[in-house]
């Protein structure tokens, strides 16, 4: 039995301990916001948060997240609201975070397939470095976007910077 929380909901799954978290989330739980891109921790499409740090779930066996708190793109706003870190300060319980809003404002996604992972990666990156330089962004955001949304990702990140 694998036991972990996804977006605040406890799950107990009768699956192999070596099954990567990505496939447990997608095929066992049927939550498809987290994407499969490469399966070898290279592209970042499968990025989720485990106890609020970004990890690439395609190579992470469920045995490694036993009892942990996992957040996927579907639960990002919920988790941020709960932690008071959504970045949106209007008392509503927003269903997107400031990062997601910046993605809309800057019209970042193209095909959009990489963006769940990109947003998860950027959210945790900004949590630890709220005012990153371009060099920080280059080093910290290594996800692949085949459509080349990078210039807009960069702009959106800068727009979120807390000086």
């Amino acid at each position: 039995m694998a036991k972990f929380k996804v977006n605040g909901v406890e799950h107990e799954l009768d699956i192999e301990p070596e099954m990567p978290l990505l496939w447990a989330i997608r095929d066992e739980l049927g939550m498809t916001g987290t994407k499969f891109g490469c399966g070898i921790a290279s592209c970042g499409a499968c990025t989720v948060h485990v106890n609020s740090s970004a990890v690439r779930s395609c190579v992470l066996p469920v045995s490694a997240v036993e009892g942990q708190d996992i957040t996927t793109i579907e639960g990002l706003a919920f988790a941020a609201n709960a932690a008071g870190t959504s970045g949106i300060n209007d008392n509503s319980a927003p269903n997107i975070t400031a990062v997601q809003q910046a993605w809309i404002d800057h019209q970042v996604p193209q095909c959009g397939y990489c963006q769940s992972g990109m947003i998860m990666a950027v959210s945790s990156f900004l949590a630890s470095n709220p005012n990153p330089s371009d060099a920080d962004i280059d080093a910290g955001i290594t996800n692949v976007c085949r459509c080349g949304s990078y210039p807009r990702v960069r702009k959106a990140i800068h727009s979120l910077a807390i000086a």
């Binding site: 498809t32 987290t34 994407k35 793109i73 809309i104 959009g112 963006q115 947003i119």
Partner: peptide, 23 residues
């Protein structure tokens, strides 16, 4: 004009072919 497909692409709800799921 803002693209209509973008909101669903920031919250994980945009369906792609790979995302079809049934029990």
């Amino acid at each position: 004009i803002s693209r209509n497909d973008i909101p669903a692409k920031v919250d994980g709800t945009a369906p792609y072919g790979l995302d079809y799921h049934s029990d």
